[in-house]
Design a binder for these strands. Structure first.
Lengths: 239, 239
DNA sequence: TGTATCCGATACAGTGGCGTATCGAAAGGT
DNA sequence: ACCTTTCGATACGCCACTGTATCGGATACA
């Protein structure tokens, strides 16, 4: 929806044809590669100097192309942004799935009462979502863009909900595994957890230049267990 | 520190003289008024279309001036941003102080055990801080700017800490008044509260166009009491 | 190997914004 | 009311970026 990626192939640059559907239509391997390189360059520059401050020309230069390549692949700036958001959010979700797959929570015995275990798994999951610091930054900017331009909001919200729901699901499974359940709505809990972790990420980032460099995970483990403990209650009041 | 506001008065526009100290140096009432109008216009436009996307020209136009006025008052774009941040953050803090002053918490009897009361006061305080939706938006963008450009970080962090500390102080006083204390570090708690409330603000904003318009305070009261209850414990284990 | 097609490079207006220099008109003092 | 100072308007040159049209080399297919 909402214009999609928009390959908009055509004969030359001229009119990239409305990138209406297209989507999965046969894109040559070559084309796909340049698209990827352009998206990579955009992600890097967006993170470095901001979305608005990044010129199309700069993106092309960093990707090793000229603007001709850009306009052959994207109708305009916003089409690139859409495509980037779609790609990165998809990547984030699949990373979450991988993390869930690889997570040790499957080994946790059914009746464990160690809330700390859940907390540590939760932290690892959050961490898995933020391997790419660039996207954390750019996504923050897109959040603001969606707040300003209401027409962008639905797409952004949908993308973010996808992720937050996935996290919520996982948290619910984890707590259930310990015979507990959340005392507040899942979504609220995830929101708090996510926001708190974002702050940890920022703090960790800031600490890089100082003499006490820490990681976000270190910071997170100092409060997540306590919060998880206090915001969950034993489940099954009546079995 | 960090360049300050920078009136940088001089003879004409030419070289606005380094806005080194200056600060409280005699600014004519006229000058002060145009500065304010420029800052107001900037705040509005920054919120509407973003900081980077706002041209100096647009700011002047909206304020009813031309660029001559701008360069007579600010050395460049970043000087304006500094001045705006300083003004708005100062405003936020004084609004918090006012809210504390006017808050009904002073009337709460010493031994009240109604955690909900504290929560509602806390919500009102948070609400008081966000009367101006524009600044909430712009401050979010400045957070990102500080994350990208490390040289901006100290000033931003200092400003934000001022506010968060003030909130933390107040929360501590409120909980103490109920004979309880936070089970996690004040700062962590405030961070969660603040982040959660920001999300409520966004949600409230989004709900404006729908058929279920709600306010941030409504949303916040649905979870803050529970969270406050669960994240505090009775104080004075040994009186 | 020849040929049609794809796709990125190059060239070209056109636009908008920046920063400076200069000018004219308010403000403010006496 | 005059003169000085302050301060915003106007005019100028400059540069970065956008979007389109055209061109030429690569690629795939026979």
């Amino acid at each position: 929806m909402t214009t999609g990626a928009g390959v908009g192939d055509n004969q030359g640059v001229g009119t990239p044809v409305e990138d209406t559907f297209a989507e999965a239509i046969a894109t040559s391997p070559r084309r796909a590669r340049t698209r990827e390189r352009l998206l990579d360059a955009a992600l890097t520059l967006f993170a470095e100097v901001g979305v608005d401050a990044t010129s199309i020309e700069a993106i092309c230069e960093r990707a090793g192309f000229t603007r001709g390549a850009f306009y052959s692949n994207f109708s305009d700036r916003s089409a690139l942004i859409d495509a980037l958001a779609a790609r990165e959010q998809g990547r984030a979700i699949s990373e979450l799935r991988d993390a869930i797959e690889a997570s040790p929570w499957n080994d946790v015995p059914e009746g464990t009462d160690d809330v700390g275990a859940v907390a540590s798994v939760a932290t690892q999951l959050l961490d898995a979502l933020t391997i790419d610091r660039r996207w954390a930054l750019v996504n923050g900017e897109m959040r603001l863009m969606a707040l300003r331009d209401r027409s962008l909001a639905p797409a952004h919200e949908a993308r973010e909900n996808l992720l937050l729901d996935a996290i919520a699901d996982e948290i619910r499974r984890l707590t259930a595994c310990l015979g507990r359940r959340l005392a507040i709505p899942d979504r609220t809990f995830v929101r708090l957890l996510w926001a708190g972790f974002q702050a940890d990420l920022e703090a960790a980032d800031r600490s890089l230049g100082t003499d006490h460099p820490t990681t976000a995970v270190e910071l997170a483990t100092s409060w997540i267990p306590e919060v998880v403990t206090r915001l969950t209650v034993p489940a099954e009041p009546s079995p």
